[in-house]
Amino acid sequence: MFMIIARTRTFLLSVFLLISTPLLAATETPVGVWKNIDDVTGQAKALIEISANAGVLEGRIVQLFRQPDEEQNPICIKCAGVLHDQLVLGMTILTGLKKDGDEWDDGAILDPNNGKVYRCKIALVDGGTKLEVRGFIGISLFGRTQVWERQP
């Protein structure tokens, strides 16, 4: 009887570890899809897919949430260089983020609304369900933070 209980306990522990390990790993990294929440209006603006390439994170817009009276497929008319007059949907707006302790920094973020590129750092919060995205000029003190929500 003791052997059956011990085997059952071992089996259940194994199943728990198999199920929970990928979930824990998913929340330890910003890689995934995030809903961008505007820090001024509180409205969802876009879905951003963050991916890693050789340990460096980047994020691109995979879906836009537009009001009926807004252009549904906008272009970045205020962007400079190769991004000028390019579609916002599919645009890479996060680049160069590298892990530094509990955050990722030394990156840049593009605001397609004004075409400006800001320095950027990000950090997971609330057990990896939210992402604090800080864009700034010069030092982090001079900037603003948005909190993005992880999507399933």
Rank of each mutant, 00 (worst) to 15 (best):
R150I: 06
L17K: 09
I48N: 08
C120P: 04
L64I: 12
D111W: 07
Q151F: 03
V88I: 15
A108L: 09
L87C: 05
G81S: 07
T95P: 11
A52N: 13
G96P: 02
P152C: 04
I5C: 06
A44Q: 14
A52Y: 02
P22K: 10
N73M: 06
V82F: 05
L124V: 04
T8V: 07
V117D: 08
W148E: 05
E149T: 08
T129E: 13
C76N: 11
E103L: 10
H84L: 08
P152I: 01
S20N: 15
I137C: 07
V33K: 11
E103A: 10
K116R: 09
T145R: 11
L64P: 00
L97A: 14
A25K: 02
G90Y: 04
Q146E: 14
I50S: 05
G42M: 10
A108F: 06
I50K: 01
D106C: 00
G115S: 05
K99I: 13
R9F: 10
Q43V: 08
K116S: 14
E70Y: 01
K78S: 09
E103T: 05
V40I: 15
D100H: 11
I137R: 08
M3L: 15
R150Y: 02
D69K: 13
D38E: 06
N73S: 13
E49P: 04
Q151C: 02
W34S: 00
G107F: 03
L124H: 13
M3C: 08
L94V: 00
R134E: 07
E58C: 09
V56N: 05
N36Q: 14
I37Q: 01
T8Q: 06
V15I: 15
W104M: 04
N36T: 08
N73P: 03
G143D: 02
I137T: 12
A123P: 08
S20L: 15
R134Q: 08
K130P: 00
L13K: 12
A108V: 11
M1K: 14
L18C: 10
I122N: 04
S14H: 09
V147M: 03
P30Q: 00
T129C: 03
D100W: 07
I37Y: 00
I139A: 10
D38G: 01
C76V: 06
R119D: 12
L89Q: 09
K121L: 12
R134H: 13
Q43G: 11
T27C: 01
L131E: 01
A6R: 10
F136V: 00
M1E: 10
F2W: 14
C120K: 02
G55W: 00
K35M: 10
I48Y: 03
A26L: 15
V125N: 15
D102H: 02
G90I: 02
A46W: 03
